[in-house]
């Protein structure tokens, strides 16, 4: 259980949700991640930044084992979720993914109604005993994703008919509906306009109270706005990891400094 008496800044073992130990990823012969060690905290937003192709998405996909769906990908090392290695043979990736939700760069609503999109996860995991309970879960998730007021009268319309920003929030609602413990977001705002981006950022702030959020972003400002912890990746290495304020004001590594000041990337 969590230590409810913790103070800001004092990290205890209980606060750590995910521990990555010497994670290496290969695509065929090509190494995409080298010896990544990182502790991701519970109820915290962690931002991954770094130049394109440095392995941010790859690392994110390690956490919910979506790399398993890429035939040529091979993962080494350990990723502990609540002290259990997700790559352990006893862990079912399908159940893992119910606990670790994911939101993709491009909104990808299913060609189903808005309701069915959100109810998808709860249905396959049998989270609701009856229709009323399912309705409750759907409404809760849509409210959580700040979408309820916009769609409550059109739940039966196709999710693909929403605007890009609404679609992305629908995808967040869909991920939230399975009540995950960790939410992974891979550049969730890259296809959105500033207003929709602001809405999603507010949402992330909300979601942090319930679970741990990991967000990949190319926007330094966004990382600074939404995250408490930041990890900087470069060429498959985790170069620097620490409090977001520290990373952006007094980076220790010269590569981090060069990247955030816009000199590499």
């Amino acid at each position: 259980m969590y230590d409810t008496t913790r103070r800001e800044g004092a990290v205890t073992q209980d606060d750590i949700k995910i521990q990555a130990r010497k994670v290496q990823v290969f695509y065929g012969d090509k190494q995409a991640l080298k010896d990544v060690d990182v502790d991701i905290l519970d109820k915290t937003v962690t931002a991954f930044i770094g130049p394109s192709g440095c392995g941010k998405s790859t690392f994110l996909r390690c956490i919910n084992r979506m790399n398993d769906t890429i035939p040529i990908a091979r993962v080494e090392g350990e990723i502990l979720l609540d002290n259990e290695n997700v790559y352990d043979r006893r862990v079912d990736p399908v159940q893992l993914r119910a606990k670790v939700g994911m939101v993709f760069q491009k909104p990808n609503p299913f060609p189903k109604s808005i309701y069915d999109n959100v109810a998808y996860g709860p249905r396959i995991h049998g989270l609701a005993r009856n229709r009323a309970e399912l309705d409750g879960i759907v409404e809760g998730a849509l409210r959580g994703a700040a979408l309820w007021n916009e769609v409550k009268d059109r739940l039966t319309e196709p999710g693909t008919g929403l605007s890009g920003g609404q679609q992305q929030r629908l995808c967040i609602a869909r991920a939230v509906a399975t009540s995950p413990e960790v939410l992974l977001m891979d550049e969730p705002c890259s296809a959105l306009d500033p207003i929709a981006t602001a809405q999603v950022e507010d949402l992330i702030e909300e979601l942090r109270t319930q679970f741990s959020v990991v967000i990949v972003t190319h926007s330094m400002q966004q990382a600074a706005r939404v995250s408490q912890k930041t990890a900087f990746f470069h060429l498959g290495n985790l170069v620097e990891y620490g409090d977001t304020d520290d990373i952006f004001t007094k980076p220790k590594d010269s590569r981090t400094e060069a990247y955030i000041s816009g000199r590499i990337g």
């Binding site: 919910n64 979506m66 769906t69 399908v94 159940q95 893992l96 993914r97 119910a98 606990k99 939700g101 994911m102 993709f104 491009k106 990808n108 609503p109 299913f110 060609p111 998808y120 996860g121 396959i124 995991h125 995808c171 869909r174 991920a175 399975t178």
Partner: peptide, 11 residues
Amino acid sequence: SLRDGSMALGA
């Protein structure tokens, strides 16, 4: 992307 979306939800 639809397949990934579904798999990522634990289907």
